[in-house]
C-alpha cells in the first residue's frame, strides 16, 4: 500500500520535473531568437550587408534611447501618446457599451440602425482623420477621438451580440419577480456580458494604438507617432525604430495590465 503511494509520489515528481525542463527549453529558445535577431541586425549593419542609413542598428538605437531618455523628451512624448491611447480605448469601450445598451433597450432602434452599423464598421475609420482634425482642432481631442472612433463600432457590435445571447430563462426568472426592463439589464444582461466587455477591452487596446499613432501622423507636434513621422521626414530612421520599439514594449505592457484586470474582475 505505502509502497504504491511512494511510487505515485515518485512518478508525480518525475512529471513535475519534466514540465520544468520543458519550460526551460521554451525560455531558452525564446532568448536565442531575441539574441540572434538583435546581434544579427547589429552585425549585418556594421558589415554593411544592410544599409545602416535605412535599417539603423541596435547600438545606435540604444544610444539614441539613452540620449532622448536623459533629455526627457522620450518620456514626455511617450506620456502624451499613452494618455491619448488610454483615453481613446476607455472612451471607445464605454461609448460602444452604451450604444449596445441602447440597441438592446429598443429592438426597433436596432433594426433601423443595423445597416448603418454594418457600413460604419466596414469603413476604414482612419479615413475620418482629416475631418476630425478640422472639426475638433489639431490637438488632444481629435487624436483621442481617433483612438476611440476606431474601436467604438466594433465594440457596439460585439457587446450587443453578447447582450442578445444571454439565456432568456434568466430574464424569465426576473420577469416572474416583476422586474422591469432596466432591472433585467442591471441584474442579468450586463453582468452576464461582463466577460465579453473585458475581452473587447483587450482588443481595443491594440486598436486605439493604431488610431492614436495615425492621428499623431496627421496632426501632432508631440508623441511617438510624431517622432516616427519626424524621423521619416528628416531621414533619421534610428528615431523611427526607437519609437517603434518603445510602442511595442509599452503596448505589450498595457495589454498585460488589461489581462491582469480581467483575471481580477472575473474570478473564475
Amino acid at each position: 500500500m505505502s509502497q504504491g503511494k511512494n511510487n505515485v509520489n515518485l512518478l508525480h515528481k518525475y512529471y513535475l520535473h519534466s514540465l520544468t525542463i520543458e519550460k526551460r527549453w521554451v525560455r531558452f529558445y525564446q532568448v536565442v531568437i531575441f539574441l540572434v535577431f538583435f546581434t544579427g541586425w547589429e552585425f549585418s549593419s556594421q558589415q554593411r550587408w544592410i544599409d545602416p542609413l535605412l535599417f539603423s542598428s541596435p547600438s545606435k538605437i540604444w544610444n539614441l534611447f539613452l540620449e532622448k531618455f536623459q533629455d526627457g523628451s522620450l518620456l514626455s512624448n511617450l506620456g502624451v501618446t499613452l494618455t491619448e491611447t488610454v483615453f481613446g480605448f476607455i472612451l471607445g469601450t464605454v461609448l460602444g457599451t452604451i450604444l449596445a445598451a441602447l440597441l438592446w433597450w429598443s429592438p426597433m432602434l436596432s433594426k433601423i440602425i443595423d445597416p448603418y452599423l454594418v457600413i460604419l464598421n466596414a469603413m476604414p475609420k482612419v479615413a475620418l482623420g482629416p475631418i476630425l482634425i478640422v472639426a475638433l482642432g489639431p490637438g488632444y481631442p481629435s487624436i483621442i477621438a481617433m483612438g476611440a472612433i476606431i474601436s467604438v463600432i466594433i465594440t457596439t457590435i460585439v457587446v450587443y451580440t453578447s447582450f442578445k445571447e444571454v439565456d432568456p430563462n434568466y430574464l424569465k426568472v426576473l420577469q416572474t419577480f416583476g422586474a422591469n426592463r432596466f432591472q433585467c439589464f442591471k441584474e442579468a444582461i450586463l453582468p452576464a456580458s461582463f466577460p465579453t466587455i473585458i475581452s473587447t477591452l483587450k482588443v481595443n487596446v491594440g486598436l486605439s494604438w493604431v488610431g492614436v499613432i495615425v492621428g499623431e501622423f496627421l496632426v501632432s507636434s508631440r508623441g511617438l507617432g510624431y517622432l516616427i513621422i519626424y524621423g521619416f521626414q528628416v531621414f533619421n530612421f534610428t528615431l523611427v525604430f526607437l519609437s517603434l520599439l518603445v510602442i511595442a514594449v509599452v503596448a505589450t505592457i498595457m495589454y498585460q495590465l488589461v489581462e491582469l484586470l480581467e483575471r481580477k474582475l472575473i474570478k473564475e
Partner: peptide, 22 residues
C-alpha cells in the same frame, strides 16, 4: 424552471433575496 437558473455571479444569499429586492 427546468434548471435552477441561479445567477452564477451572485452568491446564494444574493440569489435567494433577488425576488424580494426586485
Amino acid at each position: 424552471l427546468q434548471q435552477d437558473y441561479l445567477f452564477p455571479w451572485k452568491t446564494i444569499e444574493e440569489n435567494i433575496l433577488l425576488g424580494l429586492k426586485l
